[in-house]
């Protein structure tokens, strides 16, 4: 069954690739034939945005069971649950960054072909580069902590702090009137109905295929992370002497010793 599904996915991806090369050229672009890069470019930022929001949600779950009411004092969290949500959060962020890099790469390629420059300081390009920098800092935070608990907590805190600036840069900044007027990047192509016919169907198919691939990679990453966590916690079986860990018993003080 799994093999059949994977084979179907492979066939669909092949068909989508061929289809992307056969859709009509777009006369409005400078290089009409290469406008089809859009078909592969467009799903990437969409998945990026969904993944960072899902990652932020998982980050919130890391802090669950901690009272977040003002002036709470003694937070408590279950370490195992925290580790599980952390694995899911990092899986989301890693995949999101992959899609962000693909967005930037396809965007740069499009920029070179259509406008003649690899980097044209277009507001969209610039704002998305800021987003890449913000999430590069997320990984910097995670690398800075060797303790898994601290890594989870501080990584989650940064992921949550990064949501507002990211949403602003992706959705608001490029649409500000003076910025939108300066930008060569199309805006609201879907909402204004500019994408239609074969282009629309092809981009929807590629979006679905990318989503299936993202879900598949997410599941593999999470299962791997959970397995690593279980292995680390299973040290009682790995310990050669069979002892679990140092412990002790409270007993009355014997002052004669």
């Amino acid at each position: 069954m799994k093999t059949a599904l994977k084979a179907s996915f492979g066939l669909l991806t092949g068909w989508a690739t061929i289809w992307s090369f056969t859709v009509p050229d777009v006369a409005a672009f400078q290089a009409p034939g290469f406008a089809r890069i859009f078909l592969w470019h467009f799903p990437c930022p969409m998945l990026f945005t969904l993944l960072i929001l899902f990652g932020a949600w998982n980050s919130v779950r890391i802090f669950q069971r901690i009272e977040l009411k003002p002036f709470c004092f003694m937070p408590e969290s279950d370490p195992a649950a925290k580790a599980s949500w952390d694995i899911k959060a990092i899986a989301c962020m890693e995949l999101a960054y992959l899609f962000a890099l693909l967005t930037m790469a396809t965007g740069i390629l499009f920029s070179q072909i259509q406008w003649g420059w690899w980097w044209s300081w277009d507001p969209r390009q610039t704002s998305f580069l800021m987003v890449l920098l913000i999430y590069a800092a997320y990984f910097a935070v995670r690398f800075a902590y060797s303790d898994p608990g601290k890594r989870a907590a501080f990584g989650a805190a940064y992921a949550l702090a990064a949501v507002l600036p990211t949403l602003f840069l992706v959705f608001v900044f490029p649409r500000l009137p003076p910025i939108a007027n300066m930008s060569l990047h199309p805006t609201d192509s879907i909402l204004s109905g500019k994408i239609k016919g074969e282009y629309a169907y092809c981009v929807i198919l590629i979006l679905i295929l990318f989503t299936i691939m993202a879900v598949y990679l997410y599941n593999i990453r999470v299962r791997t992370g959970l397995a690593e966590f279980e292995l680390e916690n299973n040290d009682a079986k790995l310990d050669a002497g069979g002892d679990t860990a140092p412990t002790g018993v409270v007993r009355p003080v014997s002052l004669s010793e």
């Binding site: 800021m130 920098l133 913000i134 590069a136 800092a137 910097a140 935070v141 940064y158 702090a161 990064a162 600036p165 602003f168 840069l169 900044f173």
Partner: peptide, 9 residues
């Protein structure tokens, strides 16, 4: 390093 990117917007 983490403050500067967050403050770019």
């Amino acid at each position: 390093a983490i403050a500067v990117p967050l403050l770019l917007p």
